[in-house]
Nucleic acid binder design. Structure first.
Lengths: 253, 253
DNA sequence: ATCATAGTCGTCTCTCTGACGATAAGCACA
DNA sequence: TGTGCTTATCGTCAGAGAGACGACTATGAT
């Protein structure tokens, strides 16, 4: 079995660099936004890019993604198999891996992209240098003319698009939309998350009936708030359910 | 930005090996089966494992997966963005990437797993050596006592489980179940695919109504066949639709 | 007090689904 | 030449769920 011999021969393997890139999404001012950092060096110097970095020896992929996220935003993330949403945590999951031979002009780099869903962060500009990081509405990034007319570095535009599509479809059949919300939130705030991520307008009455009627989705905390204005709204926290049955339906059209 | 400097410094990066592993699924005799190969060398010598191998320099990830698939089975696969299902092709998509630091005892190996959905192959035993490859019912592999009481090599049990779960959920909302069928098939054959993948029994009358009523799912070819026995059944081929709206619903309970 | 804003509860209709009866059209075999 | 078995296909009916939308409630703003 020559094939089998060469398949796992550890002595002669082509060298790769492995990185993680992060698609960090949040909802700010009714818009789905992604975290971008400005590149300080060549190639793509001055371009906006997704945050990310090398996976260290002895470090797992999710571990590397989590470390990069903490370095960039201070967020603590829990991967899917971890405990349910809590304090200042964000949701983290693997998105996909990008390994086109020429995706980095310098060397062979395989990047394992991760998707992070986070509530709106208190600090608008993460990191020290105000010009080195920003939240950009994804609507401005996904069109034919990306942010300020300049596409993202490397294949990050494609990675971002894949991440946004993952988020859009995943909030349909999972309770992940709550990852965009603070620990306690109202039905209206949750509805605004769906409206921002999907870019649609939803009927408040049907939405209310749907989410409060889906078992395990929302747990009432007993409190109320008027921070949205109008009649005080009940506060909820995320329930234990991870998959929604029946799912939320994205309006077609 | 020291962090930014180190993020993409190409001169000093930890060395990784990058492989592709394949979860190749088919439906044989009313059971969902996965392709396994027997390892000829240490570690895990003599264990069953998923087919796979190193990504070559200058080779993309899907390209490497496609090459390995052809080497193991002779199948030509089309990735998702390619043309629709045709001749002897199989569906190929990236599944997930596995990079636990100790997943291979010899070195740091990051494996990009791919999922392949194929129609039942004419050759029961792929490859030359009859003892080196086999189709194994996934029901025998996913339980607490895997095939012949021996777990799969490396973390391949976990990869297989993830692949099976991906296939199970993906045939719900996409037309991918047709990837398990020959180019022309009957509604009954398609139903048997759903029954095998989900491990359930479906009502033939409701199933028929559902799939023939979903626009773009099935295209009648005009022919009929009696290969299933009983009354002649219409032959269909896969329609252009990739997402099913409304989705097929997996029975709960 | 009145209005604007948001939350919450109900109603109606339509579509889709699951359960299941009935009929159709082949093959095997007496 | 039937009879029986098998699978395909069509129909019916009741119940669940979703979209459209009316109505009422409880706050803050003016």
């Amino acid at each position: 079995m020559i094939v089998a011999m060469s398949r796992y021969d550890p002595s002669a393997f082509p060298p790769f660099a492995v990185t993680v890139d992060l698609v960090v999404l949040t909802v700010r001012e009714h818009a789905l936004c992604a975290l971008l950092v400005r590149r300080g060096e060549s190639p793509f110097q001055g371009y906006w890019a997704l945050p990310g970095g090398f996976v260290r020896p002895g470090e797992g992929l999710a571990e590397a993604a989590s470390r990069e996220l903490a370095e960039e935003t201070g967020l603590r993330a829990h991967s899917a198999p971890g405990p349910g949403p809590s304090a200042v945590g964000a949701h983290l999951e693997q998105l996909a891996t990008y390994g086109h031979p020429q995706r980095d002009p310098r060397m062979r780099v395989v990047s394992v992209a991760h998707l992070v869903l986070a509530p709106d962060l208190p600090t608008p500009q993460p990191g020290g240098d105000a010009s080195s990081a920003r939240w950009a509405p994804v609507g401005d990034l996904l069109g034919p003319t990306p942010v300020e007319g300049v596409p993202l570095a490397f294949d990050h535009g494609k990675i971002l698009a894949d991440g946004v599509e993952r988020a859009r479809s995943k909030i349909e059949y999972s309770s992940l939309a709550t990852a965009f919300c603070p620990p306690e939130f109202t039905v209206g705030e949750l509805r605004q998350v769906y409206e921002a991520v999907w870019g649609v307008v939803l009927d408040p009455r049907n939405f209310h009936r749907k989410v409060t009627g889906t078992p395990g989705f929302l747990l009432p905390t007993g409190g109320t708030t008027t921070r949205q204005g109008g009649r005080p709204a009940q506060l909820f926290k995320a329930g234990g359910a991870t998959v929604l049955n029946p799912p939320m339906l994205r309006p077609e059209a």
